[in-house]
């Protein structure tokens, strides 16, 4: 059963990745910029990873799973901002990335306190 599921998942995942690398669904987001093709494919792969995280947020049996997945999503968004800043040559995307990283860290800590069932004052 597990082997069957692994095979199916591997086939689907490899097919999607080959499709993304070989022929992205909508070609370049940033047609005039350098590295446009590479950045478009990288963005599609990051969105695929984010979809996997969203699956865990939707399904996650416990609240801890969801909090963890949201934290990981924040780190992925930092990566997306960095890739977009490569394509557009704008430095303020990195500012967004830094702010998002710190913000998601603080949010994860607050949620962890909440899950632990303690008050906020220790």
């Amino acid at each position: 059963m597990r082997a069957l599921r692994w095979t199916l998942g591997a086939i689907v995942l490899i097919a999607v990745i080959v499709l993304i690398i070989h022929r992205p669904p909508a070609m370049p987001f940033f047609p005039d910029m350098p590295f446009a093709g590479f950045v478009t494919r990288a963005l599609y792969i990051l969105v695929l990873a984010a979809l996997l995280v969203l699956f865990r947020i939707r399904k996650g049996p416990t609240a801890a799973d969801r909090v963890m997945a949201i934290d990981i999503l924040g780190v992925l968004i930092v990566g997306i901002c960095a890739v977009v800043s490569i394509a557009t040559q704008r430095s303020w995307y990195i500012d967004i990335a830094i702010a998002w990283a710190l913000q998601s860290f603080i949010g994860a800590l607050a949620f962890a306190k909440y899950l632990e069932g303690r008050s906020f004052d220790d």
Partner: peptide
């Protein structure tokens, strides 16, 4: 990121 992982792990074990 490691600190957040540690906090979530401890919270979920205690929870």
């Amino acid at each position: 990121s490691p600190v957040a992982a540690h906090a979530i792990a401890r919270a979920s074990h205690r929870g």
